[in-house]
Design a protein around this nucleic acid. Structure first.
Lengths: 340, 340
DNA sequence: GTTAGCACTCTCCTAACGAGAGTGCTAATA
DNA sequence: TATTAGCACTCTCGTTAGGAGAGTGCTAAC
């Protein structure tokens, strides 16, 4: 879509003003606050044109204009000017995200808090995955006669843990040798390359019940499976309540109920995200409350192939400038921290 | 406080009716729905008495009465009749809470979901603690030159995991022997009985840097410390939105913000809970939004000394009958499941 | 092509009003 | 003496009407 310079200015002014005030923007406001050098009447004509092009909307006949989803899209694609972050913000990020933390889980939790605090929107962080999972160590810990506890640590420092039912008649020694075998054979080897052949070999080698081996391997593979829905970390869930567009209990309920469903959130974010930073605006989102929201997503990396997605969820009237700046900032900060 | 039979009936009727309808209860309503055998005028006199005693309140002159916090207190202490659970509810509980789950964490998560689904209030479950923590196994897994990963499994099946900084100059062998020592000495022994003596012995025995030992032990002890704030699991956070008393964005925000702060929630629940089932009504709670809520808490046990607290948070106009029945039911169900 | 002027439209706020629900008091009743 | 019927009174809530304010679209002049 092509727009002449003045139309771009008018659209920019409306989006910019509406993002700040949440009030429909009138022609007089624009001519007062933005120096376009033309009168309100001229601006009104431009506004009528922009509305016809589907970039603006009018809540009712005698109100100012607000951007449509397509208007935001044009803004994000062509008008946006990403501001620089302040030094304080950068230092804060570095401090909060520094790897001197207890686990990847904690970093990710902090990331959610950080993002929500800095933006006043809701932050969503999908638990980290490894691009290629290699086990560092596996432990089979018998809990009682019919259950054992499988604990695995991956190369990236992720923790896998599952309870497994033991077929009757498996003794501690068997478990121990199975554990030794697993550690010898699996350590450092990409998990998804384990073939059923290996398992059959194991069966003969070890005389271990194939049931047990299969459940152990199933859990192991299952828990690292890329397609599975992992943990979801949220930050600033209540921030939506600050947005005037959500001063309505129905909407608040809808969005909070959505956020309570890890599966839905996971899917929404993973579907929205692509390479680099992604912006998904209003109706571009899957149907439901999400259509009144915008979602900015990106990929984070915690070194060693440990990676995941995160996003910021706000109203379509989101402060894209700032959000994009912060998302970019977080990505590069993490990169810096984890390449040292 | 003593009340004659008729006053008790009137108070019961008002609390009972108000819990169901959330509307102030008038004298006519009572005489119609509850068979007290007297006219509205008589009931009005009783109501005036009950108000003077501080058990009822009047939102405004020409409205019906609603129970005061003290009124609810009297109801809970003296008038309550706990109903029996239906067979379906009991089966559901057994199914959901059956120990055929992957970990204690998952049981606890399910518990939160179950409680909130059955009651339509918000469920809070504090992560399980062990009365006396004994380690079953410890592993020290080097991640890189300056960090290791400490993973411990307790007798009760709890998972402890912490990242630990390594003082420079510690090699893999040292770690391995430290790990062996820890497993030999700590396995099955109550952790809180470890004395600094043992650590000094270890220092000489092993020639390991005391720094390292200390950080490992600190983390180990710290992560099981009874006073520390642990994980908080919530269920049905949005359920409060169903309550008419929270059809007000200010209140909703206040309570949701509270629920976002694990520390506050943990403290509120642990402070409220005592032996057995506890009910904390409105102003009996710590100041803030909680004063408009009631909290029913109890202790759960997952066998083997693994235990914690859980609670249900709702408006003071909470359905105490049902909530108490369910809380009781959950406790006994868990007992049955984990004593098998 | 741009602008001033003006009639018109729509929202939002406030005040007024009546219906409805419930009380408290008084006087009659069992 | 305890209970009840009757009634005036109070307060909320929903509806309606009117006026201020903001902004538009159109027309005609520049």
């Amino acid at each position: 879509m092509k727009l002449d310079q003045r139309k771009r200015q008018v659209l920019y002014a409306i989006v910019h003003n509406y993002i700040q005030t949440a009030e429909p923007v009138g022609s007089r406001t624009i001519s007062r606050r933005y120096d376009l050098g033309v009168s309100p009447a001229t601006i009104r004509n431009e506004m009528a044109d922009l509305e016809e092009m589907g970039l603006l909307e009018q809540p009712h006949t005698s109100a100012g204009r607000i951007p449509s989803d397509r208007g935001y899209r044009f803004y994000v694609d062509s008008l946006l000017r990403i501001p620089a972050l302040t030094k304080q913000e950068i230092t804060l990020m570095k401090r909060i995200l520094s790897s001197r933390m207890r686990s990847a889980e904690e970093i990710v939790q902090q990331l959610a808090k950080l993002l929500s605090a800095l933006t006043n929107y809701t932050a969503i962080v999908l638990g980290p995955r490894e691009t290629q999972v290699k086990l560092r160590q596996v432990q089979l810990i018998p809990l009682n006669d019919y259950q054992l506890y499988l604990v695995g640590v991956t190369d990236g420092g992720l923790l896998l843990n599952r309870m497994i039912d033991i077929p009757s008649g498996v003794d501690a020694e068997t478990l121990e040798s199975l554990q030794r075998w697993l550690n010898e054979r699996l350590a450092g080897r990409p998990l998804d390359q384990i073939q059923t052949n290996d398992l059959h070999a194991l069966k003969y080698e070890m005389q271990v019940s194939i049931d047990l081996i299969e459940s152990v391997m199933d859990e192991l593979l299952g828990s690292v499976n890329q397609h599975e829905v992992g943990k979801v970390y949220l930050g600033g869930t209540t921030n939506i309540l600050n947005q005037p567009e959500f001063h309505d209990l129905q909407k608040v309920r809808a969005i909070l109920e959505l956020l309570e469903e890890d599966v839905l959130v996971w899917e929404a974010v993973s579907q929205a995200s692509g390479d680099g930073i992604t912006v998904s605006i209003g109706s571009e989102n899957p149907e439901g409350v999400m259509q009144e929201c915008s979602l900015v997503t990106a990929e984070y990396r915690l070194g060693d192939g440990l990676r995941g997605h995160f996003g910021l969820l706000g109203p379509t009237r989101m402060d894209y400038d700032r959000v994009l700046a912060l998302v970019q900032g977080v990505c590069t900060t993490l990169q810096q921290l984890f390449n040292m």
